[in-house]
Design a protein around this nucleic acid. Structure first.
Lengths: 239, 239
DNA sequence: CAGTGGTCTAGACCACAAA
DNA sequence: TTGTGGTCTAGACCACTGC
C-alpha cells in the first residue's frame, strides 16, 4: 500500500465513521506530512483524491473542509461490481441472482465490433436476473470473450464474475464506458422480469476494458423503472 | 493557464481532432517534459488527467495509449452546464428554452434543508422547459438562493444562469451532488411537457455548491424517457 | 537489459484567506 | 503578516514491459 493511499484510507474511514463533523477543518498538509513522516506532495495527492471523491473540499489559503457524506446511497459511480454494491445492503434487502443462460456463442457482427474480436473467437453469453423482494427487476446480459475467460460456471455467475476475473484469473479491469437510456419493454423483458405491465425500463449498456484498452466484456443491464437509482458526485477540477 | 493544463489541452485537442489513432502511443513522459520544457512530474499530472477523462490509458512500462474518443455524445458527467452541453450540438438540433416562472418565494421546510438556509432568506424559483423539434421534453425547476444571486431576469434564465453566476457575479461552482430516478408523470408534467401519454419520466435532482461546501442551488430536471441519455466513463484508479 | 510509468522527496515560489 | 493550499522542480528509486 502506498503512503498516499494509506493517508487517503485513514482519513476517508475517519470521515465515514463520523470522527469529523461536516464543516470541520482537517490538519494542514504541512502537519499531516509530519504526522505521516512524508513529504507534503504525498499528502497533497491523498487530499486531492479525498476531494475528488467528495469527502472534503479544499480551499486555498484556508484548509480542507470536511463535507457531509451521507452519500452512502448507491455509489454506482466509478467501477463498482454488483457484488460490492450489494454487500453494502443489509442482508434482508439483498437480491437473489438467477442464471438463465450460460453458453458459448459465435459473436454476431455488432458484438464483434463492440469487443474488437474476430468471428473465430467464441464469446460467453450470460443471462441473469436480479430478484429483490421476490420480484425479478433487473435483467443482465453479459458477453465475455472466451480468450480471456476460458472457463465460466453457473456458480461463479451466481456469485460475482468480476471477483473471479480479478482473483482467480488475474485479469484486472482498467476502465469502462457506459451509456444509460430508457427503452420500451420487449417480449424478453416480459418473460424474465416482473414488469407489471410497465412500458419502459432503463437500459445501462457498458463495455469493460482490461489494460491496453482491450475490450473484455459487453453488458446490457435492464432495470425496471421503479428500481432504478443512480447517484453521482461531480467536482469542479482545479487543474 | 498552468503548464500542466496547457499540456492537457494540447493533447486532448489533438486526440479530439483525430491527430492520434486509437492504439497509438503518445510520446513518453520524459520526451514530453523536454518538449514543454518542464519537469516530468508536471507532464505526469497532465497525462493523469487525460487518463481520468478517458483520452488515454497509461500502462506502466509501456507508455500512454490513445483511446477511442467518439464519446462526443452527451458529456453529462462532470459539471457541464446546459448551455455548454447544447453548444456542442449542430444549430438545427438546438433546443428552445422557455421561462414559465421566475419568482421570489419563501422556502418551504424541505428546501431550507436542501439549501441550508433560513426561513427569512428568499429563494428564486425558476421554471423552464426545453423544447427540441417543437416538442417540450425537459422540465427544469431551479431554486436559487437570493443571498448569492440578488437579481435574476428572464433573459438571463433564457440563456444560462451558470454563465451569469460565474462571469457576472464571480460565483464559482465547486461541486455538485446528483441523483437520478424514474418517476411517474404528474399533472404538472402533463401541463408543461408534450408527454404523449407517457406514464414515467427520468428525474435528475441536483444540488450545486460553491466553495466551503455552501449550497447555492437545488434543481429538479424532468426528462421525457425517449429524450433521456447519459454517458459515463469510469476508470480504475491506481492510487 | 534498457526504457517506461508510479511514487516519493525536499525544497521553492505563488495566490489566496484571515487576522 | 502569517499560514494555507496550488504548482512546479530536479532528482531518486521502484515495478513493470519488452527485447
Amino acid at each position: 500500500m502506498n503512503i498516499s493511499q494509506t493517508i487517503y484510507q485513514d482519513i476517508a474511514s475517519q470521515i465515514k465513521e463520523g470522527q469529523w463533523s461536516p464543516g470541520e477543518r482537517l490538519a494542514t498538509e504541512h502537519d499531516l506530512s509530519a504526522t505521516y513522516a512524508t513529504s507534503r506532495s504525498t499528502v497533497h495527492k491523498a487530499l486531492d483524491r479525498l476531494s475528488q471523491d467528495g469527502y472534503i473540499q479544499k480551499v486555498q489559503g484556508k484548509g480542507s473542509i470536511v463535507l457531509d457524506v451521507h452519500r452512502l446511497d448507491v455509489p454506482m459511480s466509478g467501477l463498482v461490481s454488483f457484488k460490492e454494491l450489494v454487500s453494502s445492503l443489509p442482508p434482508s434487502q439483498r437480491p437473489v441472482t438467477r442464471v438463465h443462460e450460460l453458453t458459448l456463442i459465435e459473436p454476431p457482427a455488432w458484438l464483434m465490433e463492440k469487443l474488437a474480436c474476430g468471428a473465430e473467437e467464441l464469446v460467453w453469453k450470460l443471462v441473469r436476473t436480479r430478484t429483490f423482494d421476490n420480484e425479478a427487476v433487473i435483467l443482465d446480459t453479459d458477453f465475455i470473450r472466451q480468450s480471456f475467460v476460458p472457463t465460466l460456471t453457473k456458480s461463479i455467475a451466481e456469485d460475482s464474475v468480476f471477483a473471479y476475473f480479478e482473483q482467480q484469473l488475474g485479469l484486472s479491469i482498467a476502465f469502462s464506458q457506459r451509456e444509460m437510456v430508457a427503452e420500451e419493454t420487449t417480449a424478453e423483458d416480459e418473460s424474465f422480469l416482473d414488469m407489471h405491465g410497465a412500458s419502459h425500463l432503463v437500459v445501462v449498456r457498458s463495455t469493460v476494458y482490461v489494460k491496453d484498452a482491450v475490450p473484455l466484456q459487453y453488458t446490457e443491464s435492464r432495470h425496471r423503472l421503479d428500481r432504478f437509482r443512480f447517484v453521482d458526485f461531480a467536482r469542479r477540477t482545479n487543474g
